[in-house]
Design a protein around this nucleic acid. Structure first.
Lengths: 220, 220
DNA sequence: ACCCGAATGATTGTATACAATTATACAGGG
DNA sequence: CCCTGTATAATTGTATACAATCATTCGGGT
């Protein structure tokens, strides 16, 4: 989607978001414009823009004339996102059946093939690559829904849970199953079987949730 | 939620958003920082912040070193939002059954009573008031879901379709039905009947969609 | 000792200045 | 006539300066 942000403001935005999501800051930590600016060697202006954007994303709470404070995301937030994603990814797959292009179908297949290739390397496979491919698969699917709105929401969710996602594919067992499920989803879309596509995509996320549950992201 | 923005940046943000949503600008119109600033009597700084935020909301597309362009929202976007809302409002009502507080229940009842009071005035009822109360009802329900995430998404959606919503309650017939449906939803939540609450909230939005369809917001 | 208040310092909000990039206009050559 | 290269203007990107608001500290009074 929006790839490399070569503007300073964009980089600052991504940097702070990354730091919040990765847990560098505590809840309610105060983010001072001057401090952040000096840390990254830029002036306050790009920092301010970034903080205002982060507020809109819900990662920062700004109190006028006072300061910006880290909101962070709780385990419940992540759990909620997955509960919603399981429904929305189902809808996404359903809509994709009617809107997906040849090119997108091929791209989905390609990510699957590349993923399998990575996994063939045995237990020493590169987590980075596999998670990136997983992200790519879903991103293409979002686009294929033909809905700017749905794609936007799901992309946001995807960014939010990036941290959790990383730890979710850690197990080789889960990674293999995930790819198998991607294949099934692609197959259903290819066959223009909306019902099955929705159900499979739905279950796909549910399986990830079961995995998360084992890692402490429990329900409430 | 976020009430009065007394900061300049906040006001500029809301003003531009309002102008985009109300159709003051055409698709792909270029938004020049200097021009906008002079129009509202402020400098470029608050305008820039506003534009960056609007980009995140998807209402503006920014091309680095080039400019900001209006994205606007199509009829399909609005339609998609309602399709998603019908599902998400259902989920919201379901979750609210478990999380709603006494206070929130009372507030929901109050908005209904006030709405009925407005409608009693006969055909000369105030559209402004009724739409505001409708918005209030849903806002409280979003909060009551107990999910920051879900509330955030639904609030965003709600803002997006503000224009369409206005025209959707125009008919007195629809307004009365809407209030009746709100009453039923509240009743189901009060009775802690998650199944019914979800279904009613779902259908509530569907009915609004049927109304929109008649007004040209057709499916694709 | 405790409380209140003015003065000081720190931080945000906004405006302006300057640098970098992009669009436009124009002149010259093919 | 059109195409191209360069100079000029316009616009965005960033930094800095100044104003407004909030926090803190210190001194006087009770």
């Amino acid at each position: 989607m929006e790839e490399q942000e070569h503007s300073l403001g964009g980089r600052v935005f991504q940097k702070i978001r990354e730091d919040i999501l990765s847990g560098k800051y505590e809840e309610n930590d105060e983010l001072r414009e001057n401090t952040l600016g000096k840390e990254m060697g830029v002036s306050r202006t790009p920092v301010r823009e970034a903080l205002r954007q982060l507020e809109l994303e819900g990662l920062v709470r700004i109190i006028p004339n006072k300061g910006a404070y880290v909101t962070g995301i709780s385990h419940k937030d992540i759990w909620d996102i997955y509960r919603l994603r399981s429904v929305l990814e189902g809808i996404c797959a359903r809509w994709a059946v009617e809107h997906i292009t040849e090119e997108q179908l091929n791209e989905l297949e390609e990510t699957i093939l590349l993923s399998e290739f990575q996994m063939k390397k045995g237990s020493g496979f590169h987590t980075e690559q596999v998670t990136a491919l997983d992200g790519r698969f879903h991103a293409v699917l979002y686009e294929a829904s033909g809905s700017r709105i749905l794609s936007h929401v799901l992309t946001d969710f995807h960014n939010y849970v990036r941290v959790a996602r990383k730890s979710s594919i850690l197990s080789e067992e889960r990674a293999r199953r995930s790819i198998r499920e991607h294949k099934q989803i692609l197959r259903a879309i290819w066959d223009r079987d909306a019902e099955t596509a929705e159900q499979l995509a739905n279950e796909h996320i549910m399986h990830v949730m079961q995995n998360l549950k084992r890692q402490g992201y429990e329900e409430e």
